[in-house]
Design a protein around this nucleic acid. Structure first.
Lengths: 203, 203
DNA sequence: GTGTCTATTTATAATTG
DNA sequence: TCAATTATAAATAGACA
């Protein structure tokens, strides 16, 4: 914008384009900084160069990010173990689906509400939290279902042992009806599974 | 920046501040637009006024957002049912933990990589995807562990029935050793659990 | 809260080292 | 390629409607 007026269209010459990018990017960030200071505005500015390099500016103080991080963390905690005292219990498939639907809805509502107030950095924090939240959900479900399985196995063993006592048989082969490979799972309490849908249609 | 030079600090006068905000905001967005056009850069700019009003600019076309949305969707699909054909199998607790850790890592790596290229709108798409991905993971784990339970119950029943045949007993009471409440879970295939850590220490 | 005017300050395209 | 210079275009503070 000097020496000559330019048209606002992609600059063909690669070198000239890079030079202009560098200059104008600095100008843009300066303007963003000034606006946030002068008018007490919150600004998030992210720029990717054509070559993929990232530049960002955010007016939020680190403190604010941390505070929202903490807020989110505690919400995730509440969401992920609201019932630490609850133990595995028998119920119907519908109840499980309902439970999952409710928790999912809670989570999405929470995320939707929070998202409105998040800037770029905070979104990255949220991503991290989602990762840990997801893992915690997985761990929790894994623990609980595994305990369920463990209990089933114990009950099965106990029952079979009772029957055995009545007929005086050895309990030796019993382990195998649960384990296809006896060399694994020596304490009858572990069960693993592949992530992924076992049934294409889901629950 | 004319008539008089100003200091870059918060403008005290509310009216003046709002006027400046309006003018400079437009200038900033124009600069952002020009930079993205001239230099083929991707820019996401989000501004919240002091009163909480939101203004945003993003250089990504809706089409690009949709394309990335689709890309992410397929990645999530790959991540969430990479082994549709794999069935529940016995293994050790360590293997389960490892599997979960690997999947979590994959997910976070995927998110981390994608995040670099995401602008504000795309992050909101990602949030939606995370919600559905999370639900799918839950559904998948639910399906698989429930199938595991179902198989255990069936095997237990079969084994017990075999034993019963050997001693000529009725199979009638056998259902109860699995179900604490016989009125529920009538087909032996449903198991529900509360989300949340059953054990404070995890798996 | 907006729009226009205009004197100045800023930003920057082209040039030069 | 870059950094500094310079001449010009753009942005905008303050005033006013």
């Amino acid at each position: 914008m000097t020496r000559r007026k330019i048209q606002i269209k992609k600059i063909d010459n690669t070198t000239a384009r890079q030079v202009t990018f560098s200059k104008r990017r600095r100008g843009l960030f300066k303007k963003a900084q000034e606006l946030s200071t002068l008018c007490d505005a919150e600004i998030a500015l992210v720029v990717f160069s054509a070559t993929g390099k990232l530049f960002e500016f955010t007016s939020s103080s680190v403190q604010q990010v941390i505070e929202r991080h903490d807020l989110l963390s505690s919400d995730f905690d509440k969401l992920n173990h609201p019932s630490l005292e609850l133990q595995v219990e028998s119920s119907t498939s519908a109840a499980l689906s309902k439970e999952i639907a409710e928790k999912t809805h809670e989570l999405r509502k929470l995320m939707g509400e929070e998202l409105q107030e998040l800037n770029m950095k905070e979104l990255q924090e949220l991503e991290k939290l989602l990762g840990s939240g997801l893992r915690r959900v997985r761990d929790a479900k894994g623990s609980q279902l595994m305990q369920e399985n463990k209990r089933l196995k114990q009950m099965a063993n106990r029952q079979v042992q009772t029957l055995e006592l009545e007929q005086g048989q050895s309990s030796e082969p019993i382990g195998d009806f649960i384990h296809s490979d006896p060399s694994q799972d020596h304490d009858c309490s572990d069960t693993s599974l592949k992530l992924g849908l076992a049934f294409p249609s889901g629950i």
